[in-house]
Amino acid sequence: MCKVKRKGERTISDTVLIQKVLEGNDHAFRLLVEKYRNDVFRTVFAVLRDQKEAEDAAQEVFMKIYTSLPKYEGQGFKTWMTRIAVNHAIDVKRKQVRRREEVVDALEQAALATPRDSIEKEIIEQDRRRLVRSKLNEVPENYREVIYGFYIAEKSYQQMAQEQNVQVKTIETKLYRARSWMKKNWKEDDFS
């Protein structure tokens, strides 16, 4: 059992602190936050790889922990809390990707600003992009990021490897497997 020690007091177990929080003692929750804030920060930072985003996400994780505490069933508190932190960080990461896609869409739209006589071409291009995006959702999740990064965001292997904190060879392998999957599962007619 993990213990918190305050100046001049005996150690207090997580179970006792949790019970006090459930009884309305906010100071007990502050002690839990103080005890686990570094663990929560490290967990979300491992996923997000951005100091500011990780700080914000860690605060949001503690709010989730506070509101979810009545559902806590006494299994390892640190494990339970870490699972909440990981899930929240993954959600934040997904939102970041969606925001990037929206920015790319806005930039594409600005680049496509054309005279009226080519509106038909613009509509066809939008439909094609929409189709590619919907098809991209069919791709297994572990290939999606590398396909998006290489073909839509036009990043180099080195950029993607650096962002994902992996070797360039890993990116090459993922992209090769993603292409193989697409050849096997998609027909050229789907895009014409």
Rank of each mutant, 00 (worst) to 15 (best):
T43Q: 00
C2K: 14
L131A: 08
M81W: 00
L131I: 07
V4K: 01
N142C: 09
F29E: 04
A113G: 10
H27E: 13
C2D: 15
I90A: 05
Y66I: 03
I18P: 08
I152Y: 00
F191P: 03
V97H: 15
S192M: 12
R6A: 13
S68Y: 09
Y143Q: 03
K52T: 06
L112M: 04
V92L: 07
K5I: 14
E101P: 04
D26P: 10
Q159H: 05
V97S: 08
D14Y: 01
Q109H: 10
L107D: 12
F45T: 07
V146L: 12
E102G: 12
T43A: 05
N25S: 08
Y176N: 13
I152A: 04
G76H: 13
R179N: 13
L131G: 04
Y66S: 05
E141C: 06
K155T: 04
T79A: 09
V139D: 00
L32T: 06
L48A: 01
R116F: 11
L112E: 12
I147P: 00
E172T: 05
Q167R: 11
W186R: 06
T114K: 12
A106G: 07
E188I: 11
N142T: 08
Q75K: 14
K183F: 06
A153S: 11
E9C: 13
I124Y: 08
E141A: 07
Q167V: 07
V168S: 13
N87W: 06
D91E: 08
M63F: 04
E73G: 15
T67K: 08
D14V: 09
K7E: 11
Q59F: 00
T82R: 05
E163T: 09
D105P: 02
M63C: 11
E122D: 13
S134R: 11
E73Y: 13
N137M: 11
A89N: 05
E120F: 13
A110C: 05
E34W: 00
V103K: 15
A178C: 06
F62K: 09
V86I: 15
V97I: 12
R144L: 01
V4F: 05
N38T: 07
Y151N: 09
K183G: 09
D50F: 04
P115V: 10
G24T: 03
I123R: 15
Y36R: 03
R6E: 15
E163Y: 01
Y66M: 06
Q19E: 14
I124A: 14
K52F: 01
L22S: 02
V44N: 01
Q158Y: 07
Q75S: 15
V97A: 09
T82F: 02
V4W: 00
E120I: 10
I147N: 00
R130H: 15
V139H: 14
R99Y: 09
R10A: 12
Y157P: 00
L17Y: 01
R37T: 03
R10L: 12
T170G: 03
F191C: 11
M160K: 01
L32R: 09
K52P: 02
R129V: 10
A178R: 08
E138H: 07
Y148D: 06
Y148P: 02
A58Y: 00
P70Q: 02
S192P: 04
T170W: 08
Q59A: 02
R94F: 06
G76R: 09
Q51D: 14
W186S: 10
S156G: 01
Q158R: 01
N38G: 10
D50L: 11
L136F: 02
Q159I: 03
R30T: 05
A153L: 15
A28Q: 01
